[in-house]
Design a protein around this nucleic acid. Sequence first.
DNA 1: GCTTGTGAAGAGATTCACAGCA
DNA 2: TGCTGTGAATCTCTTCACAAGC
Lengths: 217, 217
Amino acid sequence: MATGHIPEATVARLPVYLRSLTELAAAGDATTSSDVLAERAGVNPAKVRKDLSYLGTHGTRGVGYDVRHLTFEVSRALGVANTWPVVVCGLGNLGRALAKHTGFTERGFPVVAAVDIDPAITGTTVDDVPVHSPDQIAELVAAHGVAIGVIATPGNAAQETADLLVAAGVRSILDFSSTVVTVPDHVEVRTVDLSTELQILGFHLHQDLPPEVGKTP
Amino acid sequence: MATGHIPEATVARLPVYLRSLTELAAAGDATTSSDVLAERAGVNPAKVRKDLSYLGTHGTRGVGYDVRHLTFEVSRALGVANTWPVVVCGLGNLGRALAKHTGFTERGFPVVAAVDIDPAITGTTVDDVPVHSPDQIAELVAAHGVAIGVIATPGNAAQETADLLVAAGVRSILDFSSTVVTVPDHVEVRTVDLSTELQILGFHLHQDLPPEVGKTP
DNA sequence: GCTTGTGAAGAGATTCACAGCA
DNA sequence: TGCTGTGAATCTCTTCACAAGC
């Protein structure tokens, strides 16, 4: 199958496959199979094969996939050859951790700047990342070719921050702020809400509990 | 409809609705509608109505939903009345930020302890959260009734940490480690992988680029 | 009037199961 | 023989569209 449209659900799994492939290569494996990849990625083997078929891959029937070649194909599909500079907005506990996180740069997402409203820290650096004031977002985006804005501000500043990022031309936002930000259609937002994740886990813990009495007071 | 099984996709949206309802109540609104909730949650109004119908809600046709009552029903469905103590494993940049994060306690997920392998910090505290060594996980879980383990260790320690948590009786894990951890069926794992999120955004940025030349070298 | 609640249709993702081929 | 690639079946989630009812 030729490289056409790749389903979202598949896109979300490609980074996991890529990581598994890197580990397999490091372990010296030249070939692998959908079973092995599925085991490592924690999914069904048929799903792996279908996912990879969207990339126009060619594994070898009876043998499996060439690790090096598949790594190349997954990498190309994800566009990991590109570097997308990131600006982190909001330097609370989480923002600071994200600004310091070295894994981002390794994967092609260098944190080129941070932004915070506190004048006491603008002008300083956090692990070599310069801290600027929010009204410099447009300049920063232009100067560094920033592609992705990370919002780690308190909830009440999130929309405002998103507006600044969008106005500056950023087309992708990763939002940690526990709020729903509204952006134009051409901007993609992914939300990571840590409290929501815990609440989902809490829901299932709660469900497993014996039924309560007095459900309707 | 009576409170029966609630679809996963719905469960994942309930915390967002709950937050919207809290804001509406704070703003003094006594009633609201699926349109308003949909707007705030960034979803389709029909989805809101269908989601709420799983809770066995009773809005009023022609009027809408009573904010107070709906808040109560969503809260009950999520089980937010419960408190689920959390232990944070791994005190790197991210683990430290999570241990300090005050929003968790506010939502019923107090961080009662942290765990790290570095003997230099065991015995200390991070924002009043005591730091212990990993071999004390079982004790900590038993002593505090820990329900949820957060894994913020480097990838190579994640599985080992998960095993300790599971052995100690933890039934829910929130994994930030960029690895797939394997656990028994009765344990629920949710994975939050920051690099993967960026890679998904990168994929779409890359897709919007003009087609490259030399796709197959 | 206006908004809920819900069958039914539609879209998307997952899984099965087996033909195809090294 | 063994593993891929994929049509078909299935399941899940979303969206439509409208009857029900204040």
